[in-house]
Nucleic acid binder design. Sequence first.
DNA 1: ATCGTTCATTTGATCGATCTAATTTCAGAC
DNA 2: GTCTGAAATTAGATCGATCAAATGAACGAT
Lengths: 348, 348
Amino acid sequence: MNSRPTLATVAELAGVSRQTVSNVISNPHLVAPITLERVRAVIAQVDYRPNTAARRLRTQRSFVVGARMTTDFDGISGYVLDHFLHAVTSAAQRVDLHILLYVADDAEAEIQIWDQLLAEGGVDGLVLAHTHADDPRTRWLSERKVPFVAFGRPWNNNGTHPGDHAWVDVDGCAGVRLATERLLELGHRRIAFLGWPEGSGVGDDRLGGYLAALAASDQDVEPLVRRCDGTVREATEVATELLADPELTAIVTVSDSLALGASTAVRECAPRQVAIVGFDDTPVARALDLSSVAQPVDIVADHCIDFLRAQIDAANARFSQAKPVNPADRQILIQPRLVERASSRSPN
Amino acid sequence: MNSRPTLATVAELAGVSRQTVSNVISNPHLVAPITLERVRAVIAQVDYRPNTAARRLRTQRSFVVGARMTTDFDGISGYVLDHFLHAVTSAAQRVDLHILLYVADDAEAEIQIWDQLLAEGGVDGLVLAHTHADDPRTRWLSERKVPFVAFGRPWNNNGTHPGDHAWVDVDGCAGVRLATERLLELGHRRIAFLGWPEGSGVGDDRLGGYLAALAASDQDVEPLVRRCDGTVREATEVATELLADPELTAIVTVSDSLALGASTAVRECAPRQVAIVGFDDTPVARALDLSSVAQPVDIVADHCIDFLRAQIDAANARFSQAKPVNPADRQILIQPRLVERASSRSPN
DNA sequence: ATCGTTCATTTGATCGATCTAATTTCAGAC
DNA sequence: GTCTGAAATTAGATCGATCAAATGAACGAT
C-alpha cells in the first residue's frame, strides 16, 4: 500500500529540496545547523532509509566486498578461515561495507566469478585468502586495478619480494619461535618439529621460527625436523617414529591437524608425557587441551577492511591528485600469541 | 576511459531498441529468432553485462539473500552451520541468487539488521538457522511477510505444531535410531545415551530416536540415559561414570563434542573397547575415527534455496492470483545417514 | 479489400538517489 | 552603497535498466 518514503517525500515534508536531504545524509557539513536538525527530525519521523539500489546506480559503487566461502578440506585448518570470514564480516559491518559470498572450485572459476561480479557492479573489492607464489589471481586483480586485500603473504619465489598489493598476514615464524622458546624455558632439551613438505611458504616460515629459536638458545640443542602431508593419520605415523627417541620430550607442529596426530601417537604408544604445541588454536586443540599458536584473526580482519576501504575510497576520488601509495603502507605482519594449555609443561 | 557497454550501446550496434535487448536477456521467448541471434552476437562481441544496480532500482528486487555468519561457540558444533552456509552459497549461486553476510550478537540485534537491510532494499529474503520455540525472529519476519526459510524446525512448545513458515530440517530422531539399531545389530546389549539437558527440542528429538530403537528391539535392553551440557570436559566426567558399569559396551551421544568427551573418557579410564557414535560428522569425528550421524547439508541447502526462490518469485508476481500456499508444502524433513568408522564395532 | 489477432518491436516514463552547475543569502571589505 | 567571496540551497540532468502502453507487421478469415 503505502510504500517507503523517498528523498522527495522527506524534502517536501521538511520544506527543502531533495539535494539538501541528500546532503543531510551524505555531507552534513554542507548543511546549516538549523536545517540539519529540521530535516533529521523528519527523517526520523517517517523512518526514511536511502535506497541502496538508487545510490549504487548513481554512484557506480556498491559498498560490497566479495569473499570466497572456502571448502575446508580436512575441516580443521578450515576453521581459521571461517573465523576470519566472521571477523571480516564484523569489521566490514562497522564501516558500512557488506560481504557478499561466493564459492569456486579453483582459481579459474574464481576469476570468472570476479569478472561477473565486477562487470555487473556487484562488488567494489575483494578479500582473498590462501594466496601463493605467482598466484594468477593477484595478478589478474592487480592488472585491472581492482581493490583487494589478501590474508596471507604472496610468498613470491624466494620469499623475499613482498609483492605490490595489500596484504595482512600473521608472523608464523615468530609464533613458532615463541612456542619453541617457551619449551626451552620449561627445560625441554630435545624438541622435534613436525612440518609440511618443503616448499610451502607458510610451512617453511613456521619451520624457520623453530630453527631460529634453537639457534638462538645458549643450550646444547639440535634441530630435529620431520615432515609429512597434512593428514592426521600420517602425522600419527611420523610422530610415532619420533617417539622412538627416548630423549624426546616435546614436539612442535606446523598445524593443529598434525598436533592431533602427534597427540594420538603419544597416547597410543608412549607411556610418557610429551609436550605438544599446535598451530591455529582450533576447537580440536581446545578439546584436547593442546597448546597452540593462535592467529589473531580479529586484528587481521580489521586491517584487511581498513586497507580495503582506503583503496575503495581512493578509487572513488578519481579526480584527486593521484598520489601513489607506497605498497609497504598496505602490508602488515601481525604477531600471533601462544595459548598455553596442559599439553605443554615441563619434562617430567 | 571507455566505460562498460549498456543496453543502449548494444541496441545501437544491433540496430534494435533498448527494450528488445532487454527482452533478449530477460524474456527471450518474446524475441524473434533472427533478432535474438543478432543481438546475442553483439552482446557477446562487446561483452555486455547488465548493470545490477539499475535492474535492482527498477525492479525493486535485489536477488540477494541475507545469512548470518554464526559465532560458533565451542567451534565443533559450529562446523555444521559453516558447512551449511557453504552449501547455501553454492545452491544460491546456481539459481542466480547471492548471499549477503552479517553478524549479530543476539536476536534483537539481528532483527535490527534485517530492518536495515530490508528497508534499504539490500535483500529479498533471509536464511536462518537455530530457530527455537516461540522465536521472536520468525514472528517478526512472518508479520512482515518477508520471504525466509529456516534450517531447523520451530519446535513449538510441545513440539507438535509444525509452524507456518518454510523450514528444512534433518530428522535427528531417525538418525540416532539408525545408529542405535546398528549397534544392536552388531550385538551390543548395554547401550547408553549421552544427551543434553532436557527441554532442548533438538536434543529431546535425538533422544527419542534412541528410546524408539530400544523399544522396538526384540532383545532385552534397558534405556540408560545421562545428560550434561555441551562441553567436552563435562562429557568426559559423565562418560567416566557410565564406564563404571562393566556391562556397558556402547555410548550413543547427541553430538560430536560429547562423543569426543566420551572418547577421551574411554581412552583414559577403560582398558576395554567401547563403541561411540557422535552426531554431525565433524572433522573431530573423522580425525578420531568416531562413527557419527551426518546431516546432509547440501540437500538441506538445496531445499532452502528452493523454498526461498519460490517465495521471492511469488512476492514478485503481486498481481497474479493470490493462491495461498499450504505451509506443509514448504516444510521438509531430511533423512540423515550414519557414517560408520572404527569406533563402532562389535563388542569385543 | 477489410477486419481482427497474434507476434515483434518501439517509445516514453520511471525507479530513487547523486552530480553538476546555477542561484540565493549574507557577512565583511572598500 | 556596492562589491567580493564564502556558505547554503536548489534545479535539472543523469546513472542503466524495466514497465506499461502504443505501434507496426504478418496472416488467415470474412
